[in-house]
Write a protein that binds this DNA or RNA. Structure first.
Length: 604
DNA sequence: TCCGACGTTGGAGCG
DNA sequence: CCGCTCCAACGTCGG
């Protein structure tokens, strides 16, 4: 063996429990840890500012950890400085251009794609082996329309998700220069392909079925390895590839506007912070033991911590601090802890290994007399992730409704104005708009808040396609992981996995249970800061003099509600019932696949 | 083939 | 504040 080896990082931005990295180290003389800033992801239409910053921070952290081990991260991109300054000036940008944080030009020429960079790099470095993490092909592309407007995504039968095409191209590039390619599974505990195989060739479609399958399979396939103490150094001047720039840029240099002040409080990217957060959570033994997902509070906010002085244990630091109900992110605001772990962004980028998390959880659970169980326990949350990965891997056209066998075919309405109102936090429902504002500024929402806004956009109120929701979440969430994001949208829209469409979240009653004084809404929608508690979730009901006193006139300072929730949700239930009946009519008599459109003549 | 229990997280009204 | 029932209405699994 021996020779020069490349470890190509995409997700998996960590040194601990990194199978691709370990495979690269085996017998290598020089190891080039490589990250390519893919222009596909440098577009605010595809990746929002908060996630781009999280990524760049994660890269800096990885670089620092590598440098402490006599190595370094080689970050290559094809953007010459002139291209970047062009980006900063902004320009077009389609429908996204008006959004905060989305003022960047749509680029037609996008140099520096991995399939351009890799052949040059492998050749220049005389690489004998390249290792990268195997990745499920579920990348979501921008929304597209058919001329008749009936479908939401292209109907090309052989349309290949982005990651699949990228990785295939990488393999070919390596083969062309006789470079061996190794692609172990590192992102999940189980190889999704093995789960599918163990279930007779198709993914399990219920959580309990999934649990049975992995029980049969035994433990996770891969052991959990520590970070290597030292790495073979990369070739000197490995970065010097003509035609490409190198180094980790600032988000501003990539054309992103300065960070929103509220965004600054949320998450700091990188493996170092991920492990720190993990330990902080595991130290709260009783909290872990009692963790019961549906009981966690969606209105708790992320702790405002300084990006330069992160407390080693935010939960200790938060002790004694009171929840602020003031408007806006005031300086010196008390620390607020999320009611969940907030580790999802770290799992998405692989700053934290799910297998390390699971192993530590299992150890802790063994030491406890009693603890909660899947699906609602913390371990249960990690297993949901595995479940969705198996479904995503085994479902062609997973990212869209048409041609997706697990998705019910629903005749969603389409109204650009409604979608835009939802996306831009202008629905007139404070709970929905506050949650969407948290998403837009911080890149994170509690799971139950996601339920509410997803139900609202789809089956609950607006009856718009879940694909529109996927698109927005995919851009704005720090933790946007297509397999999980799409799976949850299928769930919430009652298109797959969950079918009790008559259980609709009320944008008024639901948040009241957790936060009757509306502190969460007041924080994210300062315009409503002075609205009396009684009207905080339905300000349109406040008498005009109350609105005046609160300095917030509905219809002027804050939108009037774009739908009547009671009327809309009832009408939508009826539509869903008809769509289900059409499905039953089409499949009841031994019908085949789900290609046929929902029929209008469905029986009641 | 039928029937009942179950499914991570609904709302409203009642006692 | 809790636990319970009902609400028009679901599909899946197992016996």
């Amino acid at each position: 063996m021996g020779g020069n080896t490349v470890v190509w990082f995409r997700k998996g931005l960590r040194l601990h429990d990194n199978p691709a990295l370990l495979a690269a180290l085996d017998g290598a003389t020089a190891v080039m840890p490589l990250f390519i800033l893919d222009p596909h992801f440098l577009r605010p239409q595809n990746v929002g500012g908060a996630r781009m910053r999280f990524l760049l921070e994660s890269l800096s952290d990885l670089d620092a950890s590598l440098r402490a081990r006599s190595s370094r991260l080689i970050v290559l991109h094809g953007a010459p400085p002139a291209w970047l300054s062009e980006a900063r000036r902004g320009g077009g940008g389609g429908r996204s251009a008006a959004h905060r944080g989305c003022g960047l030009t749509l680029f037609t020429a996008r140099p520096g794609k991995p399939e351009e960079v890799l052949p040059r790099a492998l050749k220049a470095w005389s690489a004998k082996r390249m290792c990268f993490e195997w990745c499920v092909a579920a990348r979501v592309q921008g929304a597209k329309r058919t001329p008749d407007g009936s479908l939401h995504t292209p109907r090309t039968r052989d349309w290949e998700p982005y990651a699949q095409a990228r990785d295939d191209a990488a393999r070919q590039a390596a083969q062309a220069v006789n470079c061996e390619v190794v692609t172990p599974v590192g992102h999940t505990m189980y190889d999704p392909r093995a789960v599918i195989a163990a279930n007779k060739g198709s993914p399990p479609l219920t959580y309990t079925a999934f649990l049975k399958v992995i029980d049969k399979m035994g433990g996770p396939l891969q052991p959990v390895a520590d970070a290597p103490a030292v790495l073979p150094s990369p070739l000197p001047n490995a970065e010097a590839l003509s035609g490409f720039s190198h180094g980790i840029p600032e988000a501003e240099a990539l054309g992103y506007p300065p960070m929103d002040s509220d965004a600054a409080v949320a998450f700091v990217g990188g493996e170092t912070q991920a492990l720190r957060m993990l330990e902080a959570h595991l130290a709260r033994t009783q909290w872990v033991a009692a963790f019961d997902k549906p009981q966690t509070d969606p209105t708790q906010r992320i702790l405002p911590l300084s990006r330069t002085a992160v407390p080693s244990n935010p939960f200790e630091a938060a002790k004694g601090a009171k929840q602020s109900d003031g408007a806006g992110p005031s300086s010196g605001a008390p620390l607020l802890v999320p009611s969940t772990t907030g580790l999802s962004p770290y799992l998405k980028f692989g700053c934290l290994s799910s297998r390390l998390f699971a192993r530590r959880l299992r150890e802790l659970e063994k030491s406890l007399k009693m603890h909660t169980q899947p699906p609602t326990s913390l371990m249960g949350q990690l297993l949901w992730r595995e479940f969705y990965y198996a479904v995503a891997t085994g479902t062609p056209n997973y990212e869209r409704m048409v041609g997706n066998k697990v998705s019910r075919q629903i005749p969603w309405a389409r109204d650009e104005a409604l979608i835009a109102a939802w996306e831009n936090a202008r629905t007139g429902f404070p709970w929905i708009d506050a949650a969407m504002t948290q998403l837009r500024t911080q890149g994170w929402m509690h799971h139950l808040a996601r339920h509410c806004v997803a139900c609202f956009l789809t089956r609950g109120d607006l009856y718009q396609s879940w694909e529109e929701g996927v698109r927005v979440f995919d851009r704005l969430l720090l933790d946007a992981d297509p397999a999980l994001n799409i799976g949850n949208w299928l769930w919430l829209s009652a298109s797959a996995f969950f079918y009790q469409y008559f259980r609709v979240y009320s944008p008024v009653a639901f948040p009241k249970k957790y936060d009757p004084k509306g502190a969460y809404v007041r924080h994210f929608l300062p315009v409503l800061a002075k609205m009396p508690d009684k009207y905080i979730y339905e300000p349109w009901k406040a008498p005009l003099d109350v609105q005046r006193a609160a300095g917030c006139i509905i219809g002027k300072d804050y939108p009037a509600p774009i739908v009547d929730h009671e009327t809309a949700s009832k009408a939508n239930m009826d539509k869903h019932a008809k769509a289900y009946a059409a499905h039953k009519a089409a499949h009841g008599g031994g019908g085949d696949d789900g290609d046929e459109k929902p029929s209008k003549k469905a029986k009641k």
